[in-house]
Design a protein around this nucleic acid. Structure first.
Lengths: 200, 200
DNA sequence: CCTAAACATGAAAGGTGATTCATAATTCAT
DNA sequence: ATGAATTATGAATCACCTTTCATGTTTAGG
């Protein structure tokens, strides 16, 4: 979709992969605007012109990467939480998958945040798509009586906010895994709140 | 701190204010990298060179703005929740203040997100400072028995994540106020969780 | 092993934009 | 009112970056 030309040979596919890997690496390290086509092609050990065989312009790689990586993320989360019996378990597992993905693809994480300033529509679409699936699952759990009745949309964004900011703190700021212990505490929060019932 | 020269005359202060207002407006509309010094000085009706009387370079206005605006945000939240009796009320009020501020300064909100790619240290410092104050308040509430015992740091980032993503959805995506109803639902979630107790 | 399609090259065009600086205007304390 | 400090100007510099294209190399099917 964002590709100028689908490769036709093995060599072509390798070069495309090479470009994407280099772009992901550099975008996540230095950001979109501080990465030049020259940086990307140097990193990939190809000539600048070669870039334009595969992409029409700089923005296209960016869009291609987001599309590609976010599909992979959703797939992974879905897969790893598919055999969960309850929504609670799915939530727990989904959170684990998300953190795992963030750690192995710090790139996507940063790229998505930056996309707000590169291509606002794609940024919005990313979160809205993500939210949509979340909302569907929340509604199901509400129908089955597992979850309390509340606006599924607000809830979806709350849960996305939690995952994103915990990922930000542990993976991006501290550069380490989110400890299982922390995930458990968050799940306890989600399950029954943070305030004691006897007090206000 | 990020200023090259503190203005010495009334005229100087007016020009500085003028530059800052223009920069905030343009950064929040088009982002840091899509805004040129020329854009800023045109918007402010001054010559390009004048910019460099007040700031050493482009990055400096950005840093100055973040510093300035985030101080104002913290001040406002603190002020508006200072006479709350319980942590619950303070949380409620703080959330309201945050959304109010986001709406009147969409600029800061976007600028902070982008700062990750302009000056990572300032981005990190912003959230860490914010978290610190949050953590101190959480600890107090825990000591007084109002809040459950759990890692205050994890909790602080959860709550920041919620506010930020709700603000993103309603104010940035939908361009409207966060309805009181929604805030109440979020507070209910925070207070006692989203899962029913009888089920898992 | 030939050849048309696919892929790769890298120098150069064409722009943009941050920053400087010599010069000019304004301010304000005395 | 005056001049030293402050503020303002905007053309010019300089570095950098995206993108093109004429030319060369490689691939793979017949």
């Amino acid at each position: 979709m964002y590709l100028a030309n689908e490769p036709k040979t093995k060599r072509g596919y390798e070069t495309l992969k090479n470009i994407c890997d280099s772009a992901e690496k550099l975008f996540s390290e230095k950001g979109y605007y501080n990465t030049s086509i020259n940086d990307i092609t140097s990193e990939a050990n190809i000539a600048p012109g070669t870039f334009y065989i595969y992409f029409n312009d700089k923005k296209s790689v960016f869009q291609y990467l987001i599309h590609d990586l976010s599909k992979e993320l959703r797939k992974q989360i879905k897969m790893e939480s598919s055999n969960c019996k309850t929504r609670y378990d799915a939530e727990f597992q989904g959170m684990k998958s998300f953190f795992k993905f963030v750690q192995s693809h710090t790139g996507l994480y940063k790229i998505i945040w930056e996309s707000q300033f590169v291509d606002f529509e794609i940024f919005k679409a990313y979160y809205e798509t993500f939210a949509e699936r979340y909302i569907a699952n929340i509604k199901l759990a509400q129908d089955e009586g597992e979850m309390k009745e509340m606006d599924p949309e607000a809830l979806a964004y709350c849960l996305m906010g939690i995952s994103n900011f915990i990922g930000l703190k542990w993976v991006i700021f501290e550069n380490r895994e989110v400890p299982d212990e922390t995930i458990e505490q968050i799940m306890a929060f989600i399950k029954s709140g943070i305030f004691k019932v006897d007090k206000k």
